[in-house]
């Protein structure tokens, strides 16, 4: 492992955010209505744990990016809050993209 093998700043977080957002939308918009309106529980039983895992990985990645000085405390808080609402992490992606663009030319230390 070398220091140069790392991906560009925030790329991993943005991808994990996309997955987390997708599992939350599927859970809230598809699986839950199927459970409570049609009595079909299987999608919730599959998507529930899947979203739990995605959420944990997302929070880990947010903390990792903050620790690596790629996110300011405000962006970190915003990323955590975004994961609580459907479409939140998708909408937050523009802010992450802007931050990634700011970091790319010369790495700053927002902490």
């Amino acid at each position: 492992m070398t220091a140069h093998s790392n991906p560009p700043p925030l790329r991993v977080l943005r991808r994990v955010a996309l997955v987390e957002g997708t599992t939350l939308v599927l859970l809230m918009m598809v699986a839950m209505p199927l459970k409570y309106l049609a009595g079909i529980e299987a999608p919730v039983q599959v998507l529930g744990p899947l979203h739990g895992a995605a959420f944990l990985i997302y929070l880990y990645t947010v903390a990792e990016s903050w620790g690596a000085a790629e996110l300011t405390p405000l962006l970190t808080l915003r990323a955590i809050l975004a994961a609580q609402i459907p479409f939140g992490t998708w909408l937050n992606d523009r802010a992450l993209a802007r931050q990634a663009a700011n970091l790319t030319p010369s790495r700053k230390d927002p902490i």
């Binding site: 903390a63 990792e64 620790g67």
Partner: peptide
């Protein structure tokens, strides 16, 4: 897990 992530990132 978050603390671990922050340590790992740092």
């Amino acid at each position: 897990t978050g603390v671990h992530g922050a340590l790992s990132g740092r």
